[in-house]
Design a protein around this nucleic acid. Structure first.
Lengths: 115, 115
DNA sequence: TCTTCATTTGAATATGTGTTCATATGTTAA
DNA sequence: TTAACATATGAACACATATTCAAATGAAGA
């Protein structure tokens, strides 16, 4: 399995030891998914807005200076990842954050930006 | 500026109040950059590996089951974002994490995955 | 019912991104 | 200098993704 390594510069012990510490590939993928959700500035801004309070789609559109449609597309992605949820009130849908860890993640990245 | 809103469903007060809470656009972009760096499973795996200990490029390649070249490309991105740094030892370059917040971010997302 | 309006959806397009392959650096030892 | 090797780089490709536009839902009121 690691035979090839012997002909290369690989330090097998270090490699094996680190491999043991890695989360399952499936967990790695899920972690990446969360980060990906927050990796687009438009989507991040939506989340930041909803972190302040609930908003309907067209309010978010104004806040983010984007089309209702564009916002709706992004909200669907966030909904699929269970980062946001919505409640209907008449014609309008009010969105809120549906994930406790998101706020913590974002605050941490804000810290990072502010050195 | 917000005149258009009066003809639409927008709640100006809520919108204005939320806009005040938003970080500067530049900060939002920088936050998104960090998340983007961790949003690719291959790149995330590299960071996870380096979180355990320093490794040279070809060790990382074995750990991640990828080409030296692919790893090198990803490391450049992580280097540019100052998430990793390297030190030379002979022919080899040993990479380590160069960012205190990254570990915290990752642990938080691990929590998230594990509910 | 019909109209209006908020939101969603789908297709199209333009732009971004990860990997591969071939080639270039730069270091060590002969 | 040369050869061998670890890593980096650039171009090319295939694939993902955000936004736009047009059209479809679905709710409320006339």
């Amino acid at each position: 399995m690691l035979d090839i390594c012997k002909e290369k510069c690989v330090n097998e012990k270090k490699v094996e030891q680190t491999i043991k510490t890695l989360p399952k590939q499936e967990d790695v993928s899920q972690m990446a998914d969360i980060f990906k959700a927050l990796s687009d500035p438009s989507r991040l801004k939506i989340v930041l807005a909803l972190l302040n309070r609930e908003h309907c789609v067209c309010d978010i559109a104004v806040i983010c200076n984007q089309t209702d449609s564009a916002i709706s597309h992004q909200l669907r992605i966030l909904r699929t990842l269970k980062i946001v949820k919505n409640r209907r009130e008449g014609k309008m849908l009010y969105y809120t954050i549906d994930d406790d860890h998101v706020a913590a993640l974002i605050n941490m990245s804000l810290d990072h930006v502010k050195h």
